[in-house]
Amino acid sequence: MNAAAATPLDLSTLLPGFSEPARQSQSCFRLIMDATALPGSISDFADLCLTPPQGIDKAAAACLLTLADADTNLWLDPALRNSESENWLRFHTGAPITTEANTATFALISSIESAPNFGEFNQGDAKYPDRSTTILVMVSSLSGGTHLTLRGPGINDEIVIAPRGLSEKFWRERDELVAHFQFGIDLILSAGSQLVSIPRTTRITY
């Protein structure tokens, strides 16, 4: 399961993580929590002092440093495997890297084309729907794409987002999964220092 665990870490080029873990993870968590409580609203980590390696958005990096640890399996898409990003995440979070999508607590996707079907990730259990995977998808921008109208818990009437680079097929696939609520996956889209959260309860029209 821990394909990567055996390979030693190359520490020579490793970039630093949080300089003040307790304070920084607290302020990052509040941004993530606000985003999750208010789907469609953008949280911005611009003020955070953190330089992740090339290949990971600052917002996605902040999320994983805040939430992942030795108790959470992390799934990385093929483009990120065995990269500087993987080293950095392994060192700073201690999270075991998994290649089995259905055991992942978190999944980080850098290229939506090479990602597996969402159905392969953990959808949760009827009695324990919280065991589902949280998927972070890095996109080029959170604006300028097709307009999507979101409704549901956390949204005062409706909110429009326009992330770039996600096809209608992507949203249809997500819709099919969350149609079986309480099962479903929770999505976080990130671009640069920004992120937006789309939990399974959000209803999308496009």
Partner: peptide, 14 residues
Amino acid sequence: KRMIRRAILKALSI
């Protein structure tokens, strides 16, 4: 704290 924070996010999602 991380364990509780993860639980809070799932609680908000469901």
